[in-house]
Amino acid sequence: MTNVQAVAIHELEQSIGETEFLRIPELVIDAGETVCLQGGNGSGKTTLLRTLMGLVRYNSGDLMVLGNDMRKIGTSSLERLRADSIGFIFQHYRLVPYLSAFDNILLPCYFSAKRRYEAERKSETAAKDAIRLIRKLSLTDPSRLSKNAAQYSAGQQQRFAIARALIGKPEMVLADEPASAMDCKGKKAVYQLLQDECRASGATLICTTHDENGIDGFDRYVNMDTLNQARERENRWSL
């Protein structure tokens, strides 16, 4: 296994006004590693993932994502990095409500030639790859994906969001509480799928959760309450 770094953080600080959200002295995640970021509400899990995606600008420190310096990266390079190399699962799934579930899953393939090529390489067509992923997510009838995304249950919508993030073999998958709307069995299936898919394709997986138990199989578990020193300071102030 090569020790190429997927994410490298050094003295990362992110704040808005007086409020400090992130202060991470050091964090390195190797390419192909599966990491679970655990922590309570407000520990900065989502902010960290959004910073890794370039959705949130940080104030100081260094951040490298898949070899890209996030401070220097240009708009179009960031666009391509996100579209071609990163699969993201939002906490509230964020499907386009008026598109069918199928179109939602295929969305990255419509805008990234690389993702479409990888999906076709895996299963002949991108559509077949979408069905393959859906089958793995314990959906009983993958053929019924033509309804608008908003018409499915929360658990099903979350599965579509996961399939959307995994399609086209991204180099890194960022999952923000990917199984929050699922029962215990569903949760296990989701974490298992994410790990299996990422390991099979060599993708880096960074997953956040506030669950402390029943999350198995990750290469590494990082406690956000310890890692993010900004929250510690905030807690001290509130005492």
Binding site: R80, D84, I86, R94, L95, F111, S112, R164
Partner: peptide, 13 residues
């Protein structure tokens, strides 16, 4: 806004 954020994530300019 959320829709836009998502579409930006998948590569819409």
């Amino acid at each position: 806004k959320q829709e836009v954020e998502l579409l930006r994530m998948v590569g819409v300019s």
